[in-house]
Measured scan of single mutants.
Amino acid sequence: MQRVNMIMAESPGLITICLLGYLLSAECTVFLDHENANKILNRPKRYNSGKLEEFVQGNLERECMEEKCSFEEAREVFENTERTTEFWKQYVDGDQCESNPCLNGGSCKDDINSYECWCPFGFEGKNCELDVTCNIKNGRCEQFCKNSADNKVVCSCTEGYRLAENQKSCEPAVPFPCGRVSVSQTSKLTRAETVFPDVDYVNSTEAETILDNITQSTQSFNDFTRVVGGEDAKPGQFPWQVVLNGKVDAFCGGSIVNEKWIVTAAHCVETGVKITVVAGEHNIEETEHTEQKRNVIRIIPHHNYNAAINKYNHDIALLELDEPLVLNSYVTPICIADKEYTNIFLKFGSGYVSGWGRVFHKGRSALVLQYLRVPLVDRATCLRSTKFTIYNNMFCAGFHEGGRDSCQGDSGGPHVTEVEGTSFLTGIISWGEECAMKGKYGIYTKVSRYVNWIKEKTKLT
């Protein structure tokens, strides 16, 4: 034993070699072989497995989906700052455009905790909710729209109204504003409101030439003092309507412009014939205590009207009353817009006519005020429907199939267009061939041609 100890002390290297040989010859039971080890760690190889990531292109799944990435790591994937920024906006807080917040056709661009709407022409605001041009839906104005110097929408209202708090709607500024039905039992019968379409306001006024200088022999019209197929109006439903009495009662109609003036057809009036105007009328054979009678003290036909040349060209006249009318729910003026808007309103496509005229061709006159909704007829169809001249200051309205029309005794009465609950004068009943005849239409004086003249002559002093 002493000898062994001496050998170990003198030859430590020998001992180490012996131990190493023993270990190498022993069977290893701690580690699995290569094949079995792979069965336990069965993990798919990654895209760049075996390579240094710093030297390969980034992978979106590896960089940002398996674990949260930084902007720089995302930049490695896209290799483009702009594309990385677009991805980053949604990656950080989701897609803010998912709810489609942009209105009126706006395009949404996502941002971090926010979004941006790219608005089409005519709109602005956070969600493109603000109209900035009158060309689109009248700028959301209830009545009139004008573009300011910086191309912003400025709404306005006709006389007797003021802008509401929203700067879009119009509200009454006087007790009985024009064009409004205020009798409670008839307010439910107000005709369907007309909503502004998209309009090209630059070209809204037709490029028409008034044929002022045409000389033409007097034409022989049949029954051209021209509501057939209409309905009984309720008291106060058309408070701007008046009836004219002269040699015979209810020979023509008219509309209240203001307390002192009536507008009617020029062919209705004769110099030297006494005319009485009755406002607030409903049943011409009954006294309903809503009527107001006034005498006409002055007749002003349009300066281009000449019955000797043509009885229905420039067929418009103004009547001055001896005493002002007292405005109330049964006696209310009709609204008159400017030339541009009167023309736009007419193009809405349908209007209402009213009167006490004959209820059928050569038949009896109506006792109760009649009204009828009539569609506008395109000019080409209008011209083809008659052998008589249709001037540019006239328009056609009615039904091709016949059966409904204005008729004798309705002449001078109103053709009105309702705009968001307020009625505007767009025409004056003038003439036609018979009444409600198939293929024939009622012919009306186009008020847009005469609004400046009306307003100039009827100013209240």
Results as ranks from 00 to 15, higher is better:
residue 2 Q to E: 09
residue 4 V to S: 12
residue 10 E to P: 15
residue 13 G to T: 13
residue 14 L to A: 06
residue 16 T to S: 06
residue 17 I to A: 05
residue 21 G to W: 07
residue 22 Y to V: 06
residue 26 A to G: 12
residue 27 E to A: 08
residue 28 C to T: 09
residue 29 T to N: 13
residue 38 N to Q: 15
residue 40 I to V: 13
residue 42 N to I: 12
residue 50 G to C: 04
residue 50 G to A: 14
residue 51 K to E: 08
residue 52 L to I: 15
residue 52 L to R: 15
residue 56 V to P: 15
residue 56 V to M: 08
residue 56 V to F: 06
residue 57 Q to D: 14
residue 59 N to K: 15
residue 62 R to W: 03
residue 67 E to G: 04
residue 67 E to S: 04
residue 68 K to L: 06
residue 70 S to R: 15
residue 70 S to H: 15
residue 71 F to H: 09
residue 72 E to C: 04
residue 73 E to R: 09
residue 76 E to K: 15
residue 79 E to I: 13
residue 79 E to D: 15
residue 80 N to G: 15
residue 80 N to A: 11
residue 81 T to Q: 13
residue 82 E to Y: 05
residue 86 E to S: 15
residue 87 F to L: 07
residue 87 F to V: 15
residue 88 W to Q: 15
residue 89 K to G: 15
residue 92 V to N: 10
residue 94 G to L: 09
residue 94 G to N: 09
residue 95 D to S: 07
residue 96 Q to F: 05
residue 98 E to Y: 09
residue 100 N to R: 08
residue 100 N to Q: 11
residue 101 P to D: 01
residue 103 L to G: 05
residue 105 G to F: 03
residue 108 C to G: 00
residue 109 K to A: 06
residue 109 K to H: 08
residue 112 I to D: 06
residue 114 S to C: 04
residue 114 S to G: 09
residue 114 S to L: 07
residue 117 C to Y: 01
residue 118 W to I: 15
residue 119 C to T: 01
residue 124 E to C: 03
residue 125 G to H: 02
residue 127 N to M: 06
residue 128 C to L: 01
residue 129 E to S: 02
residue 129 E to K: 02
residue 131 D to E: 15
residue 138 N to F: 03
residue 138 N to H: 03
residue 146 K to H: 06
residue 146 K to F: 10
residue 150 D to Y: 07
residue 152 K to H: 08
residue 154 V to W: 08
residue 155 C to I: 01
residue 160 G to S: 07
residue 171 E to I: 11
residue 172 P to I: 05
residue 173 A to W: 06
residue 185 Q to E: 11
residue 187 S to C: 05
residue 190 T to F: 07
residue 190 T to S: 12
residue 193 E to H: 11
residue 194 T to C: 04
residue 197 P to E: 07
residue 198 D to F: 09
residue 198 D to R: 12
residue 199 V to Q: 10
residue 201 Y to Q: 13
residue 204 S to P: 12
residue 209 T to K: 09
residue 211 L to N: 09
residue 211 L to P: 09
residue 216 Q to P: 12
residue 216 Q to D: 10
residue 218 T to H: 08
residue 222 N to I: 08
residue 224 F to E: 06
residue 226 R to D: 11
residue 229 G to I: 10
residue 230 G to W: 14
residue 230 G to T: 12
residue 235 P to S: 07
residue 236 G to W: 05
residue 237 Q to S: 07
residue 239 P to A: 03
residue 239 P to Q: 01
residue 242 V to D: 00
residue 242 V to K: 00
residue 248 V to S: 11
residue 250 A to W: 06
residue 252 C to V: 00
residue 256 I to R: 00
residue 256 I to M: 03
residue 258 N to E: 02
residue 261 W to A: 00
residue 262 I to M: 01
residue 264 T to F: 00
residue 266 A to I: 00
residue 267 H to G: 04
residue 268 C to K: 01
residue 268 C to E: 01
residue 268 C to Y: 01
residue 272 G to A: 08
residue 273 V to A: 13
residue 274 K to I: 06
residue 276 T to R: 10
residue 277 V to N: 00
residue 277 V to Q: 01
residue 280 G to C: 02
residue 281 E to F: 10
residue 281 E to R: 11
residue 283 N to I: 08
residue 286 E to Q: 11
residue 287 T to E: 14
residue 288 E to Y: 05
residue 288 E to C: 04
residue 289 H to I: 10
residue 294 R to F: 00
residue 295 N to I: 06
residue 296 V to Q: 00
residue 296 V to G: 02
residue 297 I to H: 05
residue 299 I to M: 11
residue 299 I to N: 04
residue 299 I to C: 05
residue 300 I to A: 03
residue 301 P to K: 13
residue 302 H to R: 02
residue 304 N to C: 06
residue 304 N to M: 12
residue 306 N to Q: 09
residue 307 A to M: 11
residue 312 Y to L: 08
residue 315 D to R: 01
residue 315 D to M: 00
residue 316 I to C: 01
residue 318 L to W: 00
residue 319 L to Y: 02
residue 320 E to D: 01
residue 321 L to D: 00
residue 322 D to W: 02
residue 323 E to G: 04
residue 323 E to S: 13
residue 325 L to W: 04
residue 327 L to W: 14
residue 328 N to P: 00
residue 330 Y to D: 04
residue 330 Y to K: 06
residue 336 I to S: 01
residue 337 A to S: 03
residue 338 D to C: 04
residue 338 D to K: 05
residue 339 K to N: 10
residue 345 F to M: 07
residue 346 L to H: 05
residue 348 F to V: 14
residue 351 G to C: 03
residue 351 G to P: 02
residue 351 G to V: 01
residue 353 V to Q: 04
residue 357 G to L: 07
residue 357 G to V: 14
residue 357 G to T: 14
residue 361 H to K: 13
residue 363 G to S: 12
residue 365 S to Y: 12
residue 366 A to N: 14
residue 367 L to W: 13
residue 367 L to F: 12
residue 370 Q to E: 04
residue 371 Y to Q: 14
residue 371 Y to H: 13
residue 375 P to M: 14
residue 378 D to N: 15
residue 385 S to D: 12
residue 388 F to S: 13
residue 394 M to V: 12
residue 394 M to Q: 11
residue 398 G to R: 05
residue 401 E to H: 14
residue 404 R to S: 14
residue 410 D to L: 07
residue 414 P to V: 10
residue 415 H to K: 01
residue 418 E to Y: 13
residue 427 G to T: 01
residue 428 I to Q: 03
residue 430 S to Y: 02
residue 430 S to C: 05
residue 431 W to I: 08
residue 432 G to C: 10
residue 432 G to A: 14
residue 435 C to G: 05
residue 437 M to A: 15
residue 440 K to P: 07
residue 440 K to A: 09
residue 448 S to Y: 03
residue 449 R to F: 12
residue 450 Y to T: 01
residue 450 Y to M: 02
residue 450 Y to E: 01
residue 454 I to C: 01
residue 455 K to D: 03
residue 457 K to F: 07
residue 460 L to F: 13
residue 460 L to A: 08
residue 461 T to L: 09
